[in-house]
């Protein structure tokens, strides 16, 4: 029987067959899943956000739901609603789409802040409270939310504190020339999605999440993470440095990355690999700086000493 780790790399390979030339993003998304966080994908329409999430849902074997956010959406549209059942003469709860293992939220910034925060609360707590009753969400619970940052009219951009709820933010970008050609010649990826085998199941994913927690972390790497955080707090180009939660997120993701790299110990290389998706959306450039998050991360990577 193949081990969990072998199944994991098989799953990655399968997604790679569908989403061509995006190995790094696939690994990042996988990392986010194993670290137990949620993923925000920020990109133009039509570069494969949906394909990524569908492929993910297929190979991980998780229960999959998809919600398209619109501006008239209400919290109950996501969380669920109690409906009066005339037969039993009682209110009966109809769970919303959030009651699933794998949720794709399209265009999260189209919904009103009220709806957004209902979702984000569910994401953070792992449970839903409606009408005075608390219901746990299934495990594992993984959300991929997408947003289109370039056309913001009629949207409610996520505030910084909400962005912080996403463990990682990635963008897919255009595929390279070779992959795109292969894609154009190879036919519709949506069709290929249907043929994807499920390589993992929810129990395996939970076991892998446990494995992430067991990755060995030596103090020299922790010091490196601390130096990164300290740098972000001191640098003049950064308005607010990374929070302690961001530091924990960094460590968690780096450990998941190490596992994905096939190691049971953490290297500064892992921290560096996940720093941009973990930190870029949490860094607020100073008012007089015209650097964006990615540039600030690049600066941190270049200037913070890896070795003590």
């Amino acid at each position: 029987m193949p081990s969990d780790l072998e199944q994991l790399s098989a799953a990655r390979a399968e997604i790679g067959n569908v989403l061509l030339g995006k190995d790094r993003q696939i690994q990042q998304a996988m990392c986010c899943l194993l670290a137990g966080g949620h993923l925000l994908v920020e990109d133009l329409p039509g570069v494969g956000k949906t394909t990524l999430s569908q492929a993910f849902a297929a190979v991980t074997g998780l229960a999959y739901r998809r919600v398209q956010f619109t501006s008239d959406m209400l919290p109950s549209d996501i969380l669920g609603v109690s409906v009066f059942d005339r037969n039993s003469n009682a209110f009966h709860f109809h769970p919303g789409p959030v009651f699933t293992q794998f949720l794709l939220v399209d265009e999260i910034n189209r919904a009103s802040p009220k709806t957004q925060s209902a979702l984000l609360e569910a994401m953070a707590e792992g449970r839903v409270t409606t009408e005075g009753e608390t219901r746990s969400l299934p495990k594992p619970f993984f959300v991929i939310a997408t947003q289109n940052p370039w056309f913001q009219s009629g949207t409610f951009p996520l505030p910084e504190s909400q962005l912080d709820r996403f463990l990682m933010r990635i963008s897919l970008g255009y595929p390279d020339e070779r992959s795109e050609r292969q894609l154009l010649e190879g036919g519709d990826p949506r069709e290929m999605l249907t043929t994807l085998p499920s390589c993992l199941d929810d129990a395996q994913i939970q076991r892998l999440q446990e494995l992430v927690k067991q990755v060995e972390v030596r103090s020299s790497v922790v010091s490196y993470i601390q130096r990164l955080i300290a740098f972000s707090r001191q640098d003049a180009e950064i308005a607010f440095g990374l929070s302690t939660r961001a530091g924990l997120a960094l460590l968690q993701c780096a450990k998941a990355w190490a596992l994905l790299e096939g190691r049971d110990y953490l290297l500064p290389d892992d921290v560096q690999a996940v720093l941009e998706p973990v930190a870029a959306h949490r860094l607020q450039p100073a008012a007089d700086s015209n650097a964006d998050g990615a540039e600030l991360v690049a600066k941190m990577l270049a200037q913070v000493s890896v070795l003590a």
Binding site: L267, P268, Q272, A302, Q303, V304, S305, V306
Partner: peptide, 9 residues
């Protein structure tokens, strides 16, 4: 080695 360069890099 650059300061931000890891051992493996």
């Amino acid at each position: 080695r650059e300061p931000g360069e890891t051992v493996a890099a």
